[in-house]
Amino acid sequence: MKYWLTCQNALMATLAYRGNLVLHLLMTAVNVMVTIFMWLAVYSFSGRSDIAGIQPNQMVIYLIVVNVLALIFSTEPIFKFSGLVRSGNLSVVLMRPINYFIQSFWDYLGRALPFLVIYGLATGFISPVLRRGLLYGLSSLVLMGLTYGMFFLMITAISLCSFWLVQVWPLRPVLNALFLLLGGQAFPLQVLPPAFAWLIYNPFSLAGNQLTLLLLGKLSLNQILLAGGWALGWAVVALGILKVVWPRGIRSYEGVGS
């Protein structure tokens, strides 16, 4: 219940600033439009009706979905945690009889809830995912959950560098670029030469490219299982980092300020 309340509070905090939410969505929409027009120009000037087997209308849908996913897979917890360490407000969190990571996950979930609802509705009503049999549907849902958990663990592990770095804001453009390039936000990774095919199993691609292909019904059951395996593997790596780094970080934490 305490974690559900954390999720509820995070959602309410997100909705408290309606103007910010609308502006955020507006900016995302503009970015998506720019990317779509760029790709349509590429199709038009190349004179080809498909690129790497992807037709223009499929590309448009892909770009819309992958950008909604970028809203769900936010890297904000890194900067939030950095703020807690820098201001010393982490002390308040440490004084509560709770698991910080579990609470942080529910907070993360609460903030992404409006976008998760959009993705969920698209999965339920537009995507063929739930119409391909029970096993396929269940596997897809497990992959979504697993990828979401993996991504959260991964960015939480990255956030622990805040214990030693006073400012982590330089990471923001780096992470945006990683999601844009490695996550397939600017283009589907399938357009890359075969030598780079392994890139589709990096954490950003699993969260962006692979979940978009899943929603569009482009992943076979075997591909879902393979992506799930990779997501699990990355989650274990992130958990390992958290287990090792957190105790060291908490010893170096000085609770600055008063």
């Binding site: 010393g88 407000n89 008063s258």
Partner: peptide
């Protein structure tokens, strides 16, 4: 069990959610 038995108020650190 220990944290359950202590209360801490650090005047310049807030427990309160700013927007709620």
């Amino acid at each position: 069990a220990f944290l359950q038995r202590i209360g801490v108020m650090l005047s310049q650190k807030s427990q309160l959610a700013w927007d709620l």
